[in-house]
Amino acid sequence: MEFLAFIGSAMLFATFALTVLFILVMVSSRLSMLILLVVPLLAVIILPGTTLAFLSYRHFLFADGLVPVNNFHILVTVWSTLLGIIIYTEFLTWYLKSGKKKLAGSQKNRSPAQIRGMLNRSVLKAKEILAKRG
């Protein structure tokens, strides 16, 4: 019974995580972050008994019963993982955009035409690869 409960919880969390990731990739990272928060929040507000019972269900007891693992702990783990992915995706996107612009701006007068050509070719090549994968 406990094993079945764990499988059910794991499937629910996996569905939730995949949904968030899908929205992150296909729609928007901000929307995925919002969904990450809002879905459990709405569940608590609409079905507090069920949601709390689900979140407080204990799957394991580690370290001789000292460390309980409830569904809430799994939710927090999923949150932190997905939040990390979203935040770093946003940050890296910004960095790549702004860094490229600034780098291009600062080296405009000094870079020889050959180097610019090489960079442009590299960017185009990367875009092609990304377009093929996408």
Binding site: L37, I45, P48
Partner: peptide, 18 residues
């Protein structure tokens, strides 16, 4: 824990993680 408390707790946990 009532629904508001639970929701508040979850929001605070989310913000802390963020």
């Amino acid at each position: 824990i009532g629904r508001l408390k639970a929701a508040g707790f979850m929001v605070s946990a989310f913000i802390t993680l963020f």
